[in-house]
Design a protein around this nucleic acid. Structure first.
Lengths: 154, 154
DNA sequence: CCTAATTATCTTATCCACTAAGATAATATA
DNA sequence: TATATTATCTTAGTGGATAAGATAATTAGG
């Protein structure tokens, strides 16, 4: 016999993940980006300028794939290649935040408004609960991913 | 000037989405499945037996892609094709739940245990908050996806 | 210093999953 | 019964991934 509310939440969190993947892909598609390109563009915005190698490590993609990724994004003028001053083998990927925002914001607008509204419906205390949950859940998922990717292969 | 806790949560929910995508792919990869195959296998388990066409609609993939998907999963004996009795053009995809579970459960085990532990650390009232958040957020994301995929193309 | 080893990215060949369009086969309709 | 419709599959072509090796810059050793 199982704790029913727990089972519910587990299922919901799974649905939540599916839904966000689907939405993410839909938005990317609408912006003329593949799911991958959209995802890593998000990372670039989030973490800012980084080298091709760092992105390869972060994403788990091969350096060849990263070259292609940068090529595609650069062709769309969403990022720019720069050689690092301290080491000219390194290629810094500089996201053009303005341009990326201009491309994506309109597509996220509806979602963002509705999310804003939803969050506004919670008390500060409840928001704290949600925040705590998120933080821990993220930690768990990242640890899981990490350990899976480490043990052999990839 | 912006509400800081809100900004935090928005960012966290984005990270949460990224983390779940990454973990999902890592688990799939470990199980010898592509991200897509893993994802839709999850749907099949969740929603149970469905026709190829239904899966095509649900996923947004073309029927050709679905044929390939079923082929791959069938070759691994994770699903089985059956012709529907009422209409023998229809191909029912019957997931072999036992086999799928046997393949995936071990990979989710760690994650699941830790999640269980995390959830157990919340009060029933807090869990209710989280559940409410999930339900509404899922609704919002599905609506967004839907409207993006509807307006032109895909 | 100068050569060899290492490091960072790119190139190439190949593969796999996707789309688009049309083929095939079963069912519904007139 | 002939025709239209529906459900899936097939085929040709494309795009993004990997693996392995090439290129170019930096670091280390004698």
């Amino acid at each position: 016999m199982e704790n029913e509310p727990l089972r519910q939440i587990r299922k919901l969190s799974q649905y939540y993940a599916y839904s966000s993947i689907q939405m993410h892909e839909a938005i990317g598609h609408k912006a003329g980006l593949s799911g991958t390109d959209h995802k890593y563009l998000g990372w670039l915005i989030e973490k800012g300028e980084m080298t091709a190698g760092e992105l390869a490590n972060l994403t788990g993609l091969t350096t060849g794939a990263i070259t292609g990724l940068i090529d595609r994004l650069e062709k769309k003028k969403l990022v720019r290649r720069k050689f690092a001053e301290d080491d000219r083998r390194k290629v810094l990927i500089a996201p053009d935040t303005k341009k990326i925002m201009a491309l994506l914001q309109p597509l996220y607008k509806d979602f963002r408004n509705k999310s804003e509204q939803l969050l506004a419906s919670f008390s500060q205390k409840d928001l704290k609960v949600i925040e705590t949950y998120f933080r821990s859940a993220i930690e768990i998922m990242e640890a899981t991913t990490h350990s899976l990717n480490k043990k052999q292969s990839r």
